[in-house]
């Protein structure tokens, strides 16, 4: 066996602190990648899953927290003024709200997805929408539901579980009322 000269052994390795730092940086990177992968792989809220509570501040400044709506059916409609299919269901949603709101066991929340306020207000005025509506600030709510577009409507049962998802516009008032009835009885679509 040949003996290594001192020069050769000095050349071979970096200082320990450099190696430790490199390892820490590498681990930090891997952790970050892991977290972001976990986040991207996380699917949408599925039927039967408990919907995390969120807060919606309406265009009028009222604050609604879904945590306070336990015991009620919550209808969450994602829309935007630039979305033409949203207009197809807007009047039906408002009719459903007017029909059900006197009972007090259903709450409608309109979440305005990446929109401009003047146009959003004009939209609400055009369809005479009276249930609470507010912007999805920083798209936090839509990210939570992982919506794929607008309109999308999520119905939450009185015990806080997601019971119905409608991708695209409702075709009729009856379809909306049926979905809400099922949510009241706790049946899952």
């Amino acid at each position: 066996m040949e003996e290594q000269t001192p020069q050769a052994s000095q050349r071979k390795s970096l200082p320990v602190w450099v190696q430790a730092l490199a390892l820490v940086v590498l681990l930090a990177f891997l952790t970050l990648i892991g977290f972001s992968l976990k986040r991207t792989q996380q699917g949408p809220i599925t039927i039967g899953q408990t919907v995390p509570a969120f807060t919606l501040t309406t265009f009028d400044g009222d604050v609604y927290n879904t945590a306070d709506m336990q015991g009620k059916v919550v209808v969450i409609n994602f829309w935007a003024s630039w979305c033409f299919p949203c207009k197809q269901e807007a009047a039906d949603l408002e009719s459903a709200w007017r029909q059900l709101s006197p009972d007090g066991d259903v709450v409608f929340l309109g979440v305005d997805y990446v929109d401009t306020e003047p146009e959003a207000r004009a939209y609400l005025s055009e369809f005479d929408i009276t249930y609470p509506n507010g912007p999805d600030l920083a798209t936090k709510i839509s990210q939570m539901f992982r919506i794929r577009g607008v309109p999308e409507t999520y119905i939450i049962s009185p015990d806080g579980k997601l019971v119905d998802v409608k991708i695209g516009p409702y075709s009729s008032l009856t379809e909306i009322l049926d979905a809400i009835d099922k949510a009241k009885t706790g049946s899952v679509n």
């Binding site: 935007a80 003024s81 630039w82 990446v114 929109d115 401009t116 306020e117 003047p118 146009e119």
Partner: peptide
């Protein structure tokens, strides 16, 4: 070129 972008540009103008 989309409709929402046109709205946002108008919002910037405003």
């Amino acid at each position: 070129p989309t409709q929402p972008c046109t709205q946002w540009r108008e919002l910037i103008r405003l």
